[in-house]
Nucleic acid binder design. Structure first.
Length: 924
RNA sequence: GCUCGAAUGGUGGAAUGGUAGACACGAGGGACUUAAAAUCCCUUGACCAUUGCGGUUGUGCGGGUUCGAGUCCCGCUUCGAGCACCA
């Protein structure tokens, strides 16, 4: 029998499907293991060769774990809501659901050809009402909970209401949009709408005012990357900053726990670091500066409490509520003009524009430590959204304050010994303090670190400030003015939002005539007719963003058809959380934060038993494209080979990589590619046309897309799987280069050659030799360790070595080959299954075999070579039995005929024996 | 600017502080073949030597620790990633 990948792969894919080989159920007699891939967005372009990289790695791991006796959950589904389908719908009128369904069918076809062990009975689609029912359900739960900072967990809003009724805000420690102070009497005196507004200040899912890029012409909010120079990228319509009332999730409440949880999960340092940066914890102090001649206190946040003696002015963010309070009549016009000018800029423009601008409010603040009066300014370099939106400026030790002071000629007082602040500020947090003393507090001579601590202690004692931890993490804006997303389970009654009853879920996404905003500027859902509005009230017209559906999907896989709960207690307590999660690192500050937040919330309300969703995370690298170029001589139809292009004036042109092999262009295919190239001429090197290449993003326009289907058709899925893994470390980004795929294809053929020569079955029942056993056990040991370490490229190298050795040993022993096949099965399941059945005669699937252990006894070397060195320089080798004791090794080394030559009468000061490697004799 | 990571042949990449370059591609040579493909064998970091043994040098740069450093430490350079008027 010859190796025929097409027949083999079709046969076993069919077999696995019919036998339900990969379907899993809860089995309490076996330990569970949950392997998950980040589910794909089914785009219209289909899969390219980069997409399956992570899926192959996780598939290998899942199969390996199963062979080790684990009950492995390995599901797959689709993140089906998304912008491309909606854009396509706007252009063509095609319902996004239709496009999405077609794309999913195509994805499924492509995935099936690669031979993954997914349990397709658990497939999910986020746009499926059965699924998004639970997305809506979770939203309702968030609406009905607030975050108690004492208990550090979510609590029911009903408890909050009880507290407000009894004590007002007194003793209430809850995450809030802004600090409120209410008495119980005031609360009870409020009408329903006022009370609703108060509760919004605490709910985990809340309606809030947020600055957004609003494009009136398009009738939608745009993301920052959809706006450039004040106009929309699509259409070029003006975009303005607008405060919009929309749904938000109070992710910021969980900032401390999101940070702390990172210490308990096995993720790469880089992605943890990215999340830490994003959460942005900073320890500092909040301090009050009295505005001179008033009873207004400006609250500021600083991490450099020690520099308070160097504060020479204050700065407010233009949006700060203090601005209005402190601006004097004389300055009011100028301040308003400044703020108006700022308003017309997008946040992005404000960031790009590094020009220092600002305006004086006319008021002064009193430095609480020195009693000196300092001017209060307004400038857009202070952000409203961080801290209190007001800062104390210390120009000597903060570069932004320094630039501002220079521009507006404000005083600069150095506070650290030896710091030269004539040209630039001294931002480092080190050195000895100077100029920092008052009657009550003397920091002079202290190290910065100690000065910070001393100042904090002092301001707390004096009641002018308190120690505070600030986080950069913002709440997530949860409304989108889009059609293709989950509808909110929300209706408005007299303008007050209410949640639908849970038993009315799902609230189905309605049909609309067009996927555009309405004429009155409402989101597309405003077009829906006869939408099932409960009791005749108005439904929320926004939809949820993309991350809504992907935040808890991993839980749903545990129990995907449950209509009574997101996941049953039984399924959740068995499968618990994802043991291995594989996906791209680009989700570090999106999906991977939101999922963790969502999970912690569900944990708080007792729905799930683990508070971290993904125990171990592997980030597969991106596969980039490797584009090929031909070089056309200007104004001709002649193309010059890469090595000769310097001699001409040429234009590089992308050519389809599928016409190029090892950078050699297939001239006939090129001529046939485009009519204008039919009569092209070529300047060749040694009879060949050599193309240039470049690493770029894999995309149609670069003609560098390699389709996995083509590889599977030509070489087979097993070759594709092995080659993708052989390309390099899984976490590394690398360009796809089909050159080299022959190597792994040859390996499979050589492996086949151990079993068959032509039609002859070579497998015999001979007892394995010591060499056979050594080759096999070396392989098992290496592959076991490599899979655990996700080092798949080196395990494939180990397979190649093993098969070459067995070939040389002419080993066809069943004993050896059976174990070889089991170990290979996770990597190349089709060929393994074929040989397992036809050559080795089994009638059960190889996936039900047991992962073999290895025996060190077969691996022990009989003899070991030591390099004998003198003063670190290797001089000769000795070969001794492997179990020889180190003193004996020393003696043998010194007894060697060459030793006396190097000793040459010198004394020996030290002898170092490294087991199995080197004897170093250090001469005195 | 801050944080994290990386740098090894023509290429992708291997190396618990212990013979650097596993494995593969590519290249060169050879066998088989009318020929090509396929397959198999040999060579392949560089330099020198080559009738034979071999020798020198070599992991971005400069130092250090060590009997011994691609690996550990300090200081740079370059590239990649994340964050970025975050006080």
């Amino acid at each position: 029998m010859e190796y025929n990948h097409r027949a083999i792969e079709a046969r076993w894919q069919q077999y696995w499907k019919e036998a339900g080989t990969y379907h899993v159920e809860i089995d309490k007699s076996r330990p569970k293991f949950y392997v998950l891939d980040m589910f794909p967005y089914p785009s219209g372009a289909g899969l390219h060769v980069g997409h399956p990289l992570g899926y192959i790695a996780s598939d290998i791991y899942a199969r390996y774990k199963r062979l080790q006796g684990f009950n492995v959950l390995h599901p797959m589904g689709y993140d089906a809501y998304g912008l491309p389908a909606e854009q396509y719908a706007i252009q063509t009128g095609q319902h996004p659901e239709v496009t999405t369904r077609d794309n999913i069918a195509r994805y499924r076809q492509q995935l099936d050809k690669i031979g993954f062990c997914f349990d397709w009975q658990r497939e999910l689609r986020t746009c499926d009402p059965e699924y998004y029912k639970w997305t809506q359900w979770a939203f309702i739960q968030m609406f009905n909970h607030y975050y108690d900072t004492d208990a550090a967990k979510a609590m029911p809003v009903s408890k909050l209401v009880k507290h407000l009724e009894a004590h007002g805000t007194d003793g209430l420690h809850a995450a809030a949009t802004k600090d409120l102070t209410l008495t119980a009497d005031q609360w009870r005196a409020m009408d329903e709408r006022q009370q609703s507004d108060v509760l919004m200040n605490y709910r985990l899912a809340y309606l809030g005012n947020t600055m957004v890029n609003w494009c009136p012409k398009l009738g939608t909010v745009l993301a920052n990357d959809e706006v450039s120079e004040g106009v929309s990228i699509r259409g070029g319509y003006p975009v303005e900053q607008k405060l919009m009332y929309q749904w938000c999730l109070r992710v910021s409440a969980y900032a401390p726990r999101l940070l702390e949880g990172l210490d308990r999960i096995d993720w790469s340092d880089s992605i943890k670091e990215t999340q830490r940066n994003w959460i942005g914890r900073s320890e500092g102090a909040e301090m009050k500066f009295r505005v001179a001649g008033t009873d207004i206190d400006l609250e500021i946040f600083t991490t450099r409490a020690d520099t308070v003696f160097g504060v020479t002015f204050m700065v407010l963010a233009p949006e700060s509520m203090y601005v209005d309070m402190v601006t004097t009549e004389d300055c009011r016009n100028e301040v308003s003009r400044y703020i108006d000018a700022i308003k017309h800029k997008t946040e992005r423009e404000r960031m790009i524009d590094k020009k220092v601008t600002g305006v004086f409010t006319g008021s002064y603040a009193v430095n609480p430590l020195t009693g000196k009066q300092i001017p209060i300014w307004v400038s857009d370099y202070v952000l409203a959204g961080y801290g209190t939106g007001a800062i104390m400026a210390v120009p000597a030790h903060d570069s932004r304050d320094y630039a501002f002071a220079k521009k507006f000629d404000l005083p600069i007082i150095p506070l650290i010994e030896g710091a030269d602040v004539s040209e630039e500020s001294f931002d480092a947090k080190s050195g000895k303090m100077i100029n920092s003393a008052s009657d009550e507090l003397d920091l002079n001579g202290l190290e910065v670190k100690d000065a910070i601590a001393a100042t904090k202690r002092f301001i707390e004692q004096k009641g002018i400030g308190k120690v505070k931890v600030n986080y950069r993490l913002r709440d997530a804006i949860f409304s989108r003015q889009r059609y293709w997303g989950e509808p909110f389970p929300v209706y408005y009654k007299d303008g007050i939002p209410h949640m639908l009853d849970v038993d009315k879920l799902p609230l189905m996404l309605p049909e609309v005539d067009k996927y555009l905003p309405t004429e009155t500027g409402e989101p597309p859902l405003g077009r829906a007719k006869n939408w099932n509005t409960p009791e005749g009230y108005r439904l929320e017209l926004n939809t949820m963003p993309g991350f809504a559906g992907s935040s808890a999907y991993y839980l749903r896989y545990m129990d995907p058809r449950n209509n009574d709960a997101l996941v049953s207690k039984e399924a959740n307590s068995y499968w618990r959380s994802v043991d291995l999660y594989v996906g791209g690192s680009e989700h570090a500050t999106g999906h991977l934060i939101y999922s963790r937040f969502w999970c912690k919330f569900l944990y708080d309300i007792g729905e799930v038993c683990e508070d971290e969703p993904f125990r171990k995370l592997i980030n597969q690298g991106m596969i980039q494209g490797r584009s090929n170029f031909v070089y056309r001589i200007k104004d001709t139809n002649t193309f010059v080979s890469h090595g000769l292009k310097e001699q001409y004036d040429v234009t590089p042109i992308h050519v389809d990589v599928n016409m190029v092999s090892n950078d050699i262009l297939d001239l006939e295919a090129f001529k046939a590619w485009r009519p204008e190239y039919a009569d092209a001429g070529f300047v060749l090197e040694e009879g060949k046309y050599v193309c240039g290449y470049a690493v770029e993003k894999m995309s149609k326009s670069m003609f560098n897309v390699v389709n996995p289907d083509d590889i599977v058709e030509r070489y087979g899925a097993d070759t594709l799987r092995l080659y993708e893994m052989f390309l390099g470390p899984i976490e590394q980004s690398k360009p796809w280069d089909t050159n080299g795929i022959d190597g792994v294809n040859r390996f499979i053929k050589k492996l086949w050659g151990l079993f068959y020569k032509g039609d002859t079955l070579l497998v015999n029942d001979d007892a394995p030799t010591a060499d056979n056993l050594k080759s096999l056990h070396k392989l098992i040991k290496k592959v076991t360790a490599d899979i655990e370490a996700f080092s798949f490229n080196t395990s494939i190298a180990a397979f190649m070595i093993c098969v070459n050795e067995l070939n040389q040993q002419k080993c066809h022993s069943r004993h050896i080959l059976e174990k070889l096949i089991v170990v290979l099965a996770p990597f190349a399941p089709h060929v393994a299954e074929e040989l397992w059945h036809t050559a080795l005669g089994h009638d059960t699937s190889v996936v039900d075999a047991a992962w073999p252990g290895y025996d060190e006894a077969y691996l022990v070397e009989k003899n070991v070579t030591y390099a004998v060195s003198f003063n670190g320089k290797a001089r000769f080798n000795i070969e001794v039995p492997a179990d020889m004791q180190r003193e004996e090794v020393e003696k043998t080394a010194l007894a060697h005929e060459n030793a006396s030559k190097w000793l040459d009468g010198k004394t020996i000061s030290k002898i170092i024996v490294v087991p199995g490697k080197i004897v170093n004799i250090v001469l005195g």
